[in-house]
Design a protein around this nucleic acid. Structure first.
Lengths: 216, 216
DNA sequence: TTCATTTCTTAACTAAAGTCAATGATCAGC
DNA sequence: GCTGATCATTGACTTTAGTTAAGAAATGAA
């Protein structure tokens, strides 16, 4: 983390990264939304960049979730604590976002946890503030609405895919669609994400690598 | 279907029901949205009421889904055809709605079927027309955006619930949350909705009704 | 590098779901 | 009400996942 010109402290490296991310966000808003410069400023100012260390728990069951989070870099895991056992239900990685709209707008506590699998840069906006900005800037609401529509379609697809596949098929899909997770995440967390115990995922992997006649 | 005053034909009964539903929709728009009378008219005119007979297939895999449908009365089943087998993934009933936004806006074909389990009254709006109305009436967009946010939260909840429960738990949940489905829908369709074969659902029911010591 | 901890794999056994086949129950159309 | 077709249940057997326990491999901190 040192240049040969001038040593930089970790925190100053982080600061300049954050400044860069903020500038990028402002640019994107300005490029994609037909809004006055003041509007762009107001929306960009509502965005906060946060760096969270691996292991940080950013939300606990029972809390109200006010944040809409976009992952710039890193990995956040969602899990449910059921009879003392962690059941992983999501892995969010680069360019994915998550929010609990009904929790924020209706003040309902969530029933899940969010924890950083790696050091993670997040772009965060408070949902209530977001909804206020909708009133002021209809173009911002339109863009967010389109984003939410996409997320809805994605979740619909994930739900039906999960319902119509076996754990082994889900593992094969994961190998194709998100192979990075295999190295980023411990296997016992992947197991519960696929709906089985760690021992079963071991056996599934063994089955697959022994029967290499099936090549998919 | 006859009064003792004057016999009415089935189709005229249906016509007056449809007129009533239309009036109700117009009222709701007018009551909940701060929009001019002309705006209310334009939005209400974009809504079409349809009566579909039980068994009607309203969408097939491979088609683009243009409609946003609200169920006034009846039941629509979503299923996937996988290796010749129907896998049910949703039952939509009264006051639930469904749409495939990315299919309509990006012209992507869907991979599922929609079929009426019962005679069903639907309130239908074309999604592209809906999106045009968003431009004209921001209050309409706001209301729809809030509805989509709720749907997103619901789907998130459904997905995590499905991922963290066993078929038996799902059946027990169904008994509590949607007991009407038990009588409205054949059991082999419920089975695949719960993620098992019909024979397994039979055994699950047997297990539950034999072990009445557990009372939930 | 070493050691302790965590994670992953394997094995033996149990429980649950899939498969195939036969039998009962239910329902729609006549 | 009868009848054929569809749907639900049961049984025997196979496959897959859960459970418990042990040991191997990988990881991280001193």
């Amino acid at each position: 983390m040192e240049t040969h010109i001038k040593p930089k402290s970790d925190s100053s490296v982080v600061e300049s990264l954050i400044a860069g991310y903020k500038a990028e966000i402002r640019q994107n808003i300005s490029k994609h939304l037909p809004i006055s410069k003041e509007g762009v400023d107001e929306i960009a100012d509502a965005v906060q960049i946060r760096l969270l260390k691996a292991g940080t728990i950013l939300l606990r069951a029972g809390q109200v979730a006010f944040d809409c989070c976009w992952i710039i870099k890193g990995c956040v895991r969602q899990y449910h604590l059921i009879e003392g056992e962690e059941k992983t239900t999501f892995f969010f990685t680069e360019d994915q976002w998550f929010a609990s709209y009904t929790s924020a707008t209706k003040k309902v506590p969530v029933n899940h946890y969010l924890s950083c699998v790696e050091d993670t840069f997040l772009s965060v906006m408070n949902i209530n503030q977001e909804q206020e900005l909708y009133q002021k800037y209809p173009a911002f609401e339109s863009a967010c609405r389109a984003g939410i529509e996409n997320q809805l379609s994605d979740y619909h697809e994930m739900l039906t895919t999960y319902m119509t596949t076996t754990p082994e098929e889900r593992y094969r899909n994961l190998l194709k669609t998100r192979p990075d997770l295999l190295s980023r995440v411990p296997q016992y967390q992947l197991a519960s994400y696929l709906g089985v115990k760690p021992e079963s995922l071991s056996r599934i992997r063994k089955r697959i690598y022994e029967n290499l006649q099936r090549r998919d």
